[in-house]
Amino acid sequence: MNATASALTVRDPWSLVPSLGNLDAYISAVNRVPLLTQEEEVNFARRLREHGDVESAGKLVLSHLRLVVSISRQYLGYGLPHGDLIQEGNVGLMKAVKRFDPDQGVRLVSYAMHWIKAEIHEYILKNWRMVKVATTKAQRKLFFNLRSMKQSLKEDSADGATHRNTLTQGEVDTVAERLNVKREEVLEMETRMSGGDVALEPQTDDGEESYAPIAYLADDSTEPTRVIEAHRRDWLAGDGIAQALDALDARSRRIVEERWLKVNDDSSGGMTLHDLASEYGVSAERIRQIEVAAMKKMRKALAQDA
């Protein structure tokens, strides 16, 4: 038996590969796993397809883990953890192994590439931004090609302005033509990709007042409790005050109106306690006592109408 066959006859083939917790060790281990010959690959695939042999499926997956690592490196520019990209790619590899038909005359490596990329693409689209940037097939194609095309166009530009973050009008037209999409779609996708996420909640724990978007995005003007409170305030400021004043005798009412409700042209307010005391021929303290009693009576009247 050759080295390849003996290496893949381990009862638990996954024991050859460490967990993704140590990424460097994992990559090193999968790169040491021997590749299958075409004959071995076909035999394992047929045993899986005809007999549901799980051990054969494991050997097919194990021998192609290095392919997932290689493909996942192409997507490191999106800022997502390499280990997560590999893990999602492994899911795609297992789906490919399950659906692989050895009688089609195609090697598993070629067939699996589509499934591996599809799973990685889906993971990136779900996690690269909180809001999805691409939903249709055309948008996905644009999303995964725009970044590399932008870099290529900048390197080929006559002015050598590789520091530019936006595309020129000519570059937009070039991308649209190559990808067979509308230039408006290119501009929209570039805007989506250049925009970052904004946290709704405050990101500091220093105890200081923070004005995160959550503080001003909410519109509570139509919240039932606030609507009721607003109606109540409006009533108190209008009909409520008028009804409360009607409960007072003439002198008490005039004192309250002069002290609290009257505004002169010079914005100086109404009469003072001493002005009212002189008019009624009593002391300023007496006017204050009448005012306090009137205010209590008004509050009682307002409470009854609540």
Rank of each mutant, 00 (worst) to 15 (best):
E177R: 15
L248Y: 02
A134N: 08
S283W: 07
K154I: 00
K98C: 09
L20C: 03
V61A: 14
E285Y: 09
A294S: 09
R288Y: 04
R259A: 08
E88F: 07
F143Q: 04
E40G: 10
E119D: 12
L146T: 09
K98E: 15
V198Y: 06
L76V: 13
P202Y: 05
Q74W: 01
A237I: 03
A3V: 08
D239T: 13
R49H: 07
A138K: 11
E50P: 00
T37L: 03
G270E: 11
L60R: 06
K297S: 12
L16I: 03
L273A: 09
V181S: 02
G79L: 07
S6R: 13
N43A: 14
K141C: 07
S148W: 07
M295V: 10
D239K: 10
R49F: 01
R183K: 14
K126R: 15
Y111L: 05
V282R: 10
V256K: 01
N22I: 01
D219V: 05
A118K: 13
L302W: 06
K300Q: 14
R99D: 14
S283E: 12
A237W: 05
G52T: 10
S252P: 03
S278K: 04
Y111W: 11
E209S: 09
M189P: 00
V282F: 02
S15P: 00
R253I: 04
E201F: 11
R254P: 00
R99N: 14
E39W: 06
I116N: 01
D239C: 03
D275W: 06
R46D: 05
Q87N: 14
E119M: 07
P202A: 07
D266A: 15
L60N: 09
L20V: 08
A57I: 00
M149T: 09
Q289G: 01
A215F: 04
D305I: 07
A57C: 05
V68H: 00
D84W: 05
V256Y: 00
